[in-house]
Structures are given as C-alpha cells and as structure tokens.
C-alpha cells in the first residue's frame, strides 16, 4: 500500500465502509465518463489541429493572391493609395459575430463573417483611374479575410479545447491516481480494522469460555470433594467450606461482566 496516497480520516465503522464503497463506485463511473469525454474532445482537438495546419497553409496562398491583387491596383493607379484608404476608413463593413458549437458540453465559439450593409468607405476610391482594379482587390481581400476569420475560429477553438482537455485530463488523472486508490485504501483500512476487532472479540470470547469451563470444572471438583467429605465425615464444618469458592467465584464473575 503506497503511503503517499494515504487514506481518508474516517472511523473504521461499518457505516463508513458503506459510504466508501459507494464513493468508490461513483469515482469509477465518473472516471469512465470523463475518460470518454476527454477522448471525444481529443478527437475533436486533433481534427481541429489538422484543420489549422491546412488552413494556415491555405492562408499563405490566399494572402499571396490578395497581395498580388494589391500590386495590380498600384499598377493601375500608378501611385500609393494606402494613406487615403487608411484615412477614409470609418465604419467596418466586414464584421464577425460569434456562434457556439457544443462539443461534449464545451461551447466552442465559431466566428461568422457578415457584411454590414450600406457601409462603403471606399466607393469612390480610384474614381479617376484604377477603380475597377480596386474593386477587384476588395473582393479578393474580402475572400482572404473570410479565410482568416475561419482560421481564427479554429484557433480559438484550439485554445479553448486545449484548456478544457487539460482540465478534464487533470480530473481523470486525479480520479485515477488519487481518489480511487485512496478510497480503496480506506476501504482496506476499514476492513482490516473491522477484522481486527472481530479477532479480538473472538479471542476474548474464547478466553471467557475457557475460564468459565475451568471455573465450572473447579466448582464441580469442589462440590464433588465436598460431597465426598460429607460422605466420609458427615456433619462437620460443611457450612464453612462452600463460602470460600463463592467469594472467588464472585470476583471472577465481575471481571467477566466488566
């Protein structure tokens, strides 16, 4: 029995034995449930990880295409539009909202992009020249950002799942390596204590019965001897003799009763 695990501070009684047994049962059920939850989450987690890996590669490509479309814009406009774009930005047209997906009781946020209607900060940019390229570039970038948002959802799910899986695994491990052994220990302890008590009881009873046998044997012998004496010389000191063993017998008796 590993001393590190220890046992719970209980009195070794039959009642607490019952309690411990039901606790052990509960812990085992909980352990198997959590184990299954952790497995389900891990499965999901691995899937997400794989998708993150893919999405990150995809992002590389998408962003490259987008950057290239910006190059087309600067070719067509023949100048730098960066500053103007930065200054004309006012209201976000491209926004996200969070939805939730339930995976084994864990709420995973899912970003969903949507376009705020009626907001168009750059409608007239490139009016003189390059407007068509800018339009195309906006579309390309909007698609790229959608990919990014998707990736962001995955990444958030990844972080949350990572955290949750850690917690669940910690619980599983705690149950498996601490709670179950400790409860088992306690049960063993209670059992051994109860056995010990049983043995003591048994031994004592045996002792008592031995003593009683001896006493009865002695008493019998005395009675026998007294009878013999009485038979040999009747009417001589008979009332005195039986008193002495009676006194002794009384002392013994109190001991037995305790």
């Amino acid at each position: 029995m590993s001393g590190a695990v220890g046992r719970e501070p209980v009195f070794p009684t039959r009642q607490s034995l019952g309690l411990m047994k039901s606790k052990l049962k509960g812990a085992e059920t909980g352990h198997s449930l959590l184990k299954r939850k952790s497995e389900a989450l891990t499965k999901r987690f691995r899937e997400i990880t794989r998708r993150i890996d893919e999405a990150k590669q995809k992002m590389g490509r998408v962003m490259q295409i987008a950057a290239f479309s910006l190059a087309e814009v600067s070719y067509a406009v023949g100048g730098d539009i960066g500053y103007q774009i930065q200054e004309s930005a006012k209201q976000a047209r491209f926004r996200v909202r969070a939805k939730h997906e339930n995976v084994s009781g864990v709420l995973l946020p899912q970003f969903e992009s949507y376009t705020q209607e009626g907001v168009n900060d750059f409608g007239l940019t490139g009016l003189g020249k390059g407007g068509q390229q800018i339009q195309r570039c906006r579309e390309t970038y909007a698609r790229a950002v959608e990919t990014l948002v998707e990736l962001a959802s995955l990444q958030t799910a990844f972080l949350i799942l990572d955290e949750v899986i850690k917690v669940v695994n910690r619980r599983v491990n705690a149950i498996e390596h601490v709670i179950i052994p400790r409860t088992e220990n306690t049960i063993k302890y209670i059992n051994s204590e109860l056995d010990e008590l049983d043995r003591e009881e048994f031994y004592r009873l045996k002792k008592v019965s031995n003593k009683k046998q001896r006493d009865t044997a002695a008493a019998d012998a005395e009675i026998l001897a007294a009878r013999q004496q009485a038979e040999e010389k009747p009417r001589n000191g008979t009332p005195e003799e039986p008193e002495a063993p009676d006194v002794l017998g009384e002392q013994e008796d109190t001991d037995v009763i305790f």
Partner: peptide
C-alpha cells in the same frame, strides 16, 4: 462578453493594412 466582439483589428505593414482595409474591416 464575446457577443460584443464584432470587429477585426490589424497590425501590419502598409500593404497588408491597405488590403485588409479595402476588404472593409477598418473601423474608427
């Protein structure tokens, strides 16, 4: 709390920022 979160933010070089702003993420 994350119901309120609806914007994207960007820290980057001029080209990246310009492109992403063109996509319409800019908000002041």
């Amino acid at each position: 709390t994350h119901k309120e979160r609806q914007f994207l933010a960007v820290i980057g070089d001029e080209d990246s920022v310009t492109g992403l702003l063109l996509a319409g993420i800019g908000h002041v």
